[in-house]
Design a protein around this nucleic acid. Structure first.
Lengths: 139, 139
DNA sequence: TATTGTTATACTCTATAACTATA
DNA sequence: TATAGTTATAGAGTATAACAATA
């Protein structure tokens, strides 16, 4: 009940600020934001189907297809038919894709560190900790 | 360089979660999200021009016009020509608009409190404090 | 001539609905 | 018949450009 901003407004502003700050970094790596989101989603494990991948990044399955086309053409990921059910296509990072993702992310992490530099270390740790817990809960 | 999520991804998820959680509340008060954003922007002071109001909420001046039309028709705000320069229209909350804003915000604050209830009070305070500082810096 | 608010037009993005190939 | 992927169509949302009123 304090006089602070709405959470939604605060998160919204920070989302926009991060998107703007990431944009030039991603462009240096020839990635659109959604390319990066897709590559990130594939980092821990390959997606067994495109539909599942679409669900995890919360976009329609029809809308990631041009992105996958582009990423596959640039050899950042592979689409291989599932032998057990050839309707499915298993989407996985290539070594190149993993390297590009690692490099882009390293730059983004440096940008983020600069962005949070004015926050004292103790508070920053708590902030990032709570943020990650909330984000995980938000699915 | 830890294994945490990107800030952008974390903020993005939480933004979406808040928008979804606010949606039913706002609907109970017959407000769209952008209605609420506009009313909130007018809370501290009236906007001297529509263009300035559009800039503060980061939308095109042409796009807030239908929203202002609707809010004005419902007597939640007023548009009065500036006597000093009759091209300008001063946009201000009405008493009704202020009351609706207050009620909606109170409900949103309760929702937010529930959303953060699992975070220990000490961490929660730090989190909200840092969040508000970052959001303010993000403009 | 320049600017505010407004309206109209064009464009992009998103959602929905067909189509194919497998099962 | 049902489902994954794809393509095509329709609709919503957004940006740009023209217009009227005032300065």
């Amino acid at each position: 009940m304090t006089d602070r901003h709405d959470l939604g407004a605060a998160f919204g502003r920070l989302t926009r600020a991060m998107v703007e700050a990431e944009e030039p970094i991603l462009r240096r790596h020839d990635l659109e934001m959604w390319d990066y989101v897709l590559l990130s989603a594939l980092e821990s494990a390959a997606a067994p189907t495109q539909a599942e991948l679409a669900a995890t990044v919360r976009r329609d399955k029809t809308r990631i297809i041009p992105l996958l086309d582009s990423l596959e053409e640039r050899r950042l990921l592979s689409r291989t038919p599932d032998p057990a059910d050839r309707r499915n296509r298993i989407v996985a990072l290539t070594d190149t894709g993993r390297a590009v993702l690692r490099d882009a992310r390293a730059e983004i992490r440096r940008m983020e560190a600069g962005y949070l530099a004015s926050i004292p270390a103790g508070e920053r740790k708590v902030f990032l900790d709570v943020l990650d817990r909330l984000a995980a809960a938000a699915g």
